[in-house]
Computed example of a mutant assay.
Amino acid sequence: METSPAGTTFSPILQLEGVTRSFRQGEREIVVLKGVDAVLWPGQAVALVGPSGAGKSTLLHITGLLESPTSGRVFLNGRDCATLSEGERTRLRRKEIGFVYQFHQLLPEFSALENVVLPQLILGRARKAAEARALALLSGLGLGERANHRPAELSGGEQQRAAICRGLANSPKLLLADEPTGNLDPHTSEYVFRELIDLIRHQGVAALIATHNLELARRMDRVLQMHEGRLVELAPASVGR
């Protein structure tokens, strides 16, 4: 147990300890992450900022258990992920981690409702319960009447809101988002961002959100900047000033 910044004692959702990641390119070794430390708490929206190529996507992949660090440790809800088998990592990823991407990546042949139902069925939830949760999530983001429309029949903002619902379908502890509003016009981006933050806080999810939009970053609870392979915490109000 640790003490959160707000003074309430509870366990962090995510802990990164000395995470490194390097790649071989011919005879060269390219070091992307040089010892990343971070702690994320329930209900926090944390911005991940930094220039393209700084390692943000690599960090999200490691945090989401899509790849392993070269060294260091990733703890998710108190579990040391390095000790898990590949099957256990897959089950943990499906149950406790949600993903939202810049391009919604909804399955085009399925309706918005079906796209939100599918991750729940994979986890083993009964179809009726999965459909009820999917409809509740979609309705909460103003998509109740659009639930049976396929992605091609939805606007860009509607598609991204459906993707957010899919990311939250299995009630994850951790939500990872990579430029979730980066493909939207400013008005739609503002609406989607507001709804996303409200869901994060209402559901007590710890969220790490990579973004180039510094205005949105300033409005999150915390800001972490990738700098020379490490994370530096910034005061939100100071970002981009």
Rank of each mutant, 00 (worst) to 15 (best):
V36G: 01
D37E: 14
V39C: 14
P42R: 00
V46P: 00
A47L: 05
P51G: 05
P51F: 10
S52R: 02
A54I: 07
K56F: 05
T58D: 08
L60W: 03
H61G: 12
I62Q: 07
T63V: 13
L65R: 02
L66T: 05
S71Y: 13
S71T: 15
L76A: 08
A82Q: 14
T83H: 10
T83R: 14
L84T: 07
T90I: 10
T90V: 14
L92Y: 10
R94I: 07
E96C: 07
I97Y: 02
G98H: 02
Y101R: 04
Y101F: 15
L107I: 15
P108E: 10
S111G: 08
A112Y: 03
A112I: 01
E114Y: 11
E114L: 05
V116T: 03
Q120G: 06
I122V: 15
L123H: 09
G124M: 06
R127D: 11
K128P: 07
A132G: 08
R133G: 01
A134T: 04
L137Y: 03
L141R: 04
G142K: 09
L143R: 00
E145S: 13
E145H: 15
R150M: 06
P151N: 08
E153W: 13
A163S: 06
I164Q: 07
C165W: 03
L168I: 00
A169V: 04
